[in-house]
Amino acid sequence: MNLILSIAQIVLVLILAPSVSWWIKKIKALSQNRIGPTILQVYADLGKLFQKGMVISDQASWIFRAMPYILFSSALMAASLVPLFFKSSLLGFSGDLILFVYFLALGRFFLTLAALDTGTTFGGMGSSREMALSSLAEPALLLSFFALAYRAGTLSIEGIVLHFSLEAPFPILFFTSMAFGSMLIVTFVESGRIPVDNPATHLELTMIHEAMILEYSGRCLALIEWAHQIKQFLFLSLLVNIFSPWGLADSTMGIHLLFSFLFFLSKIFGLAFVIGWVEIHTAKLRLFRVPDLLAIAFVFAVISLLGQLMIGR
């Protein structure tokens, strides 16, 4: 039964990931006096891309063809480590906290390589910016993970979630909220949102993530977009489940699962609303101010870890 539920979680990640993108688009549209897309639009876009043919440069190597599959499967593997509304994940084990970061790094490595593959300058631009920013974001993410792992006493994601769900709400203290701040900033960077990157822009010279996938079309592009949405969803799930894990189902009774699922959905959409709120109210930062933002995230993570080590849990 556990197995079925864990697999169901992954299937749900696949299904729900685009809807978070839709929600953020809808919020932004409403703030601009527009109606915005319906929820079916995001799925229809993915479906349309899957049906279209692909145009691949004959100068491209195997990396270009393989990358979308590698990216998508690494995102799925990372998804199999994160519990959503049920207490255990499919492949969770002790130490999977670090593996999560490196699955995403694997996907990112191939993404940046494939961007350089066709030899266009836009791809090189996007890839160099992505590498610079993620070289700052990954340490911040890992450090905040370590801070949380220290508090929970375990290096597995489901272990951390379980530990926090058993604690009373208010003792989740100052130091873990610093880790929350750090992870929230990293979420903005990883999901490519304003103030770091504008997902809706048409200006290639300003793009970070989009510039790397300019050469893709058809099925490959659909997989890349989907993998990006899954990554965004995973970060939101981590934030929600680690920092407000109450309501997580630990039995397999139908009613508990249903309640836990709905509660989880509302928390996800609530956090997505916060992301949309920030997107509406700020302009994109100048490229070389983003490292300052990431330095703040890093400092938060360091304070969180050191604070817990010195002052105690």
Partner: peptide, 13 residues
């Protein structure tokens, strides 16, 4: 017109 190594590492530098 291809990105050079100097250009690629510029943000990090």
């Amino acid at each position: 017109m291809q990105y050079t190594a100097t250009g690629y590492s510029k943000p990090l530098r």
